[in-house]
Amino acid sequence: MSSKSNNEVLLEVKNLKKYFEINKGFFGRSKEYVQAVDDISFFIRKGETLGLVGESGCGKSTTGRTIIRLYEPTAGEIIYDGVDISELSENDLKPYRKKIQMIFQDPYASLNSRMTVGDIIGESLDIHGIATGAARQERVFDLLNRVGLSKDHASRYPHEFSGGQRQRIGIARALAVDPEFIICDEPISALDVSIQAQVVNMLDDLQKEYGLTYLFIAHDLSMVKHISDRIGVMYLGKLVEVTDRNELYDSPEHPYTQALLSAIPIPDPEVTRNAQRIILEGDVPSPINPPSGCRFRTRCSYAMERCAEEEPVLREVNEGHFVACHLMDEKFPITE
């Protein structure tokens, strides 16, 4: 465990579910649900970074958006600093809108192109009445400065900036309310390689400076490993494995995690050409009708009969290492 995280839990998610309703049939009488997030539980300690990885459609972004209440959770609890915020009204939620912030994926879509950069960053100051007039301007300049931009940029419009600069404006907007916890929803996947490192380093520095806690959502395992203290792996709405970053890399237990790790192309010709790849067959099934039992079984080379019948639960197989797989019962027998 990284030294900077203490043991105080800041956020605990318990049995969180988010189903999206899709209407089918005449007048929408027969309803179907996309089980985007299905019964996941995890916690994040103060000052640490939890990485959340998985492929598109696995529910990682939905998890982030449900925690910040952009989506109404279907079931479950979101306990932030001891308070369940999953059912708070928008009004009661307002103080938490200052504590929890979000950085978005698309640097082009995440900034309102009709507003100046100064107004984008300053919007939360207006909403929460934090600062007005000269004080507001002062704060906007300070925020721009913190993300490596100058105050001349405040009067410009988003389309004049490059992707990396826009993403930093997005970070400045999130920082404006002095948050404690930031959900980073794929903040670097739309950026060029050389720019990604700029943004990641900035997130690192800001975390050290302000003691921020991050939920870092991404599909790029190498970046997630770089920035996270602990990593959760999601597959089709389920959390299949959570553990320390090094543990995940050294001894991944879930067959999906193993496949995911082996699929990463390493920028080293010899290594990558000689690597023993686990090539998964087929595609991710539809989250409308997920497979029974273990959702990964349709692509898993170790699938047993039991996997189709019984859903594996996420349990601690080693200290701080949680896995949801029936294979674990043999490898790490349950000790009463």
Binding site: G164, V193, A197, Q198, V200, N201, H226, I266
Partner: peptide, 25 residues
């Protein structure tokens, strides 16, 4: 070289700082 340095390596235990290429194209 800059490209190589700005991507994280998978095989290190400790968090290493990335070396970004400053500026924009």
């Amino acid at each position: 070289m800059g490209l190589m340095k700005s991507i994280p390596r998978m095989d290190t235990k400790e968090k290493q700082r990335l070396i970004p290429i400053p500026g924009t194209p």
